[in-house]
Amino acid sequence: MYKLSGVTKQYSRGKDTVHALRGIDLVIEDGDQLVIQGPTGGGKSTLLQMLGGLDRPTAGSVELDGVDIARLSETKLTKVRAENIGIIFQSFNLIPTLTAQENVETALVPLGLKVSERRSRAAEALESVALAERLHHLPGELSGGQQQRVAIARALVKKPKVLLADEPTGALDEGTRDDILALLDGLWQEYGLTFIMVTHDSHIAKRAPRVATIKKGQITVSDRTTATK
């Protein structure tokens, strides 16, 4: 369970101070699906970085299962990311020189598993996203949708508690977008994990059971019936 209390993030841009987040309070239960939406520059990606332990707030706390990850040492925070948090990026962020299977394996490297176990788990993960035939293909040999499937397999292969997705369909066409969304929905239900997705796509927001809207660093949370734009 996530519990954010008074999360503030400020950073300098030249002489100006930018208030990306202004005292965010938010609770996300285990197994929840939350869509974060809002205008560009509103602070949604910054909030996702706080949730993923990719950045630290200027003030406030970010508790994951009762542990304030904002106060953890870099080593412990890295361990939390390695074991508990899966992340999907808008531009897939695959390593171009590694095959699909090797890309998925990169998520298992920090866990210190044996090579054979890493390989079999990566193959299973790719099979679960319908890419069993593309294990040895390089990212450049795959379509955008297939690359995002590899990224999803990489995020889920370590069986994380939380899945964070930053505009996962932002670089895909409409048809592929729906396929990926259906896949993510299915996996969310299958794995029973907490799924938090940032998007500016209102079509996606409409389908979400819970929506958080961020504007000028401030958050408004609504349930499915009230989540509109």
Binding site: R81, A82, F89, N93, A107, V109, P110
Partner: peptide, 16 residues
């Protein structure tokens, strides 16, 4: 930068 940032986001230690 993005490549190494991704690896760190996946839990790779700075040393690795």
């Amino acid at each position: 930068v993005r490549e190494f940032g991704t690896l760190k986001a996946l839990g790779w230690k700075s040393g690795r």
